[in-house]
Design a protein around this nucleic acid. Structure first.
Lengths: 347, 347
DNA sequence: TGACGAAATTGGAACGTTCCAATTATTAAG
DNA sequence: CTTAATAATTGGAACGTTCCAATTTCGTCA
């Protein structure tokens, strides 16, 4: 059943040319005559030839594979990011090697090693929690282009693409203040991450700017998941002076917060304002539609891929840190009016 | 910056042995003396050697890569499936090549071709909508082990792993009937898919079994997404005789149905019973927690990977079709009592 | 017709590994 | 102390491609 491998030599023989010519055809070289190209192509089709990239790879170091490693594929933010990367990488004739680390740095080490062994010509990494510059040192020393997404590691000295977490959080909190909220909580997320730090700083700065105190009791960490949101809001509602609004670490937490509110017979939007972060695909269709800081995960994936491809083709480029702008998308979960609701849904 | 490649010969020279011995060490052969092994290993570490899989691959046809192609990575069902596959594949020393087709069969063709070029030694495929046996024919003819997941294509003659959609749908509808519902809708999903067909048949059979009519107007297709669920329930509520309960095509649709109900000021669970399908991770924490037919996507990924690995090691095994059992997980969205709710959440 | 340049084609040496058969070192038995 | 058996090690030929330099083919022009 498993047939003999068909190689370029077989094609060459069948088409009556040399293997060099076949190779030229395979690479789409302009040097080869139209008639011969046709002959070769029919031979390829007839014999069911499949190109052997391992062999090609061995000869010419550049590989047409890029690797992408994410810390949590079950979070739809990262799934969408991967889809964005895939789109541009694919159209550039590359193929994507995707691995999930599940936030485990041990696992991350393994998958990065494995990708290097497979000769990826570039890597997009959303680092696992607690990844340090030292963990990436051997990788960057090898000279293969790397771009970090979502979480930057400044000392690593590689390109990065992050979102403007600070500005986004500020915009969200300003909006809540404008609506008259005076006790605003920051819910969810692991406090020991850079992203948490940035968003929380934006939250604090916006409060300070409005001359309001930034109280520690209103900052409640949790797992950055739906379940984490439930527990965080429960904790917030135990306070003697309850908040009336919350900026959440991300959309998953925000959905969890809505769930937790409902469990207490509070209607998100009407009784308590909630704002998320990321603008995942469900944010728009949820009820109430989630007000959130839009990060456009898919777009970020695309930009990261562009950046990486640019570095791959340009050889070793300077490391650049791109901070991608974000925008507040006001929907219903922070108490939108009916008119605004109609506008958002129809758009 | 980009250093010279370190190869086995360099290691051999540094350790004072032959390249053959280094190769033996690399493969963990028992033939090599403990002392030499140690020498070689330190040399490997000191020179920062990275194994070149392309070269290895070229020599020995079997590759340690398995490919997984899914039709919609942004659907968390498939993301979880991929995570399950990854887990077992990784621990077997394989690495996973993941591609997303976005339901486009053109794209599917491309990624499968690309994977073959990279010499994957097996493939797990969740076929794009409308994939036919003919599309897979060249692949299966090549003798590469393939296992189809989620959507079976009987004529393709390859192994498959699907869930018992018919039985699951029946169980769900029986449950609704027991609770006294008499007008039960089937909402969401593309009617031209095998999965839809099976779930819908289960729905019909359960109605028939109870001596109830299966009305066409109560079967409303839509995109199998949250947004699709919203539109499907809207349409259902336009009927002169409204349903009081629905079995949804999948959990995403079910969440959308809940959203749509809320938009009409109906409380899912209390005012209208909804049951989903798949049991994605959010089903448990949503409010109300979603009653659903549990398919355990991650477990399915694991089983699919096991099946594939077995076929890879065993050479060409007989194609087997596994239908994995499902079970109804009763939570709140179909009108659970308070006691039951407490039990579920604490578990 | 011959010479010339351009266009098209080609043989063979890489690339870094594995595998085989052959060799050498070590141990056990006589 | 030899011999046989076993344990370790080794050179060299693959694997299927690309790339270089060299060659052949062809059309054009003097």
């Amino acid at each position: 059943m498993a047939k003999e491998r068909v190689t370029v030599v077989d094609i060459a023989r069948a088409a009556g040319v040399s293997k060099s010519t076949v190779s030229l055809v395979l690479q789409g070289s302009a040097l080869v005559n139209e008639a011969t190209r046709a002959k070769v192509n029919t031979a390829i089709r007839e014999l069911g030839y499949v190109y052997n990239r391992s062999a090609a790879n061995l000869r010419q170091a550049r590989s047409k594979i890029i690797g992408i490693v994410v810390n949590d594929l079950t979070n739809s933010f990262f799934a969408e990011l991967a889809v964005g990367v895939d789109a541009v990488v694919q159209s550039a004739g590359f193929v994507q090697f995707l691995a999930n680390t599940g936030e485990k740095s041990e696992r991350q080490r393994e998958v990065i090693a494995s990708m290097r062994e497979h000769g990826v010509s570039g890597l997009i990494i959303s680092p696992a929690r607690g990844t340090e510059a030292a963990d990436l040192a051997p990788l960057v020393a090898s000279g293969i282009p790397v771009v970090l997404v979502v979480r930057d590691i400044a000392e690593a000295g590689v390109s990065s693409l992050t979102s403007d977490n600070h500005a986004g959080a500020m915009a969200a909190v300003r909006h809540l203040i404008e609506r008259g909220h005076r006790r605003i909580a920051f819910l969810g997320g692991f406090p020991d991450t850079a992203v948490f730090e940035a968003r929380m700083r934006g939250y604090r700065d916006a409060l300070r700017e409005a001359g309001m105190p930034a109280l520690d009791e209103l900052v409640i960490g949790s797992a950055p998941s739906r379940a984490g949101g439930v527990t965080a809001v429960e904790q917030a509602m135990m306070l003697k002076e309850r908040p009336t609004a919350a900026l959440c670490f991300n959309d998953a937490v925000a959905f969890g917060v809505c769930d937790g509110l409902r469990a207490r017979r509070l209607e998100p939007g009407a009784d308590f304002a909630v704002i998320g972060f990321d603008d995942v695909i469900e944010a728009k269709t949820a009820v109430p539609a989630l007000t959130t800081v839009s990060v456009d995960p898919q777009g970020m994936g695309e930009r990261a891929a562009d950046l990486l491809l640019r570095q791959i083709t340009a050889g070793r480029a300077e490391a650049e840190s791109i901070i991608s702008p974000v925008r507040l998308v006001v929907r219903q979960s922070c108490g939108g009016t009916v008119e605004r609701r109609v506008k958002e849904i129809s758009s």
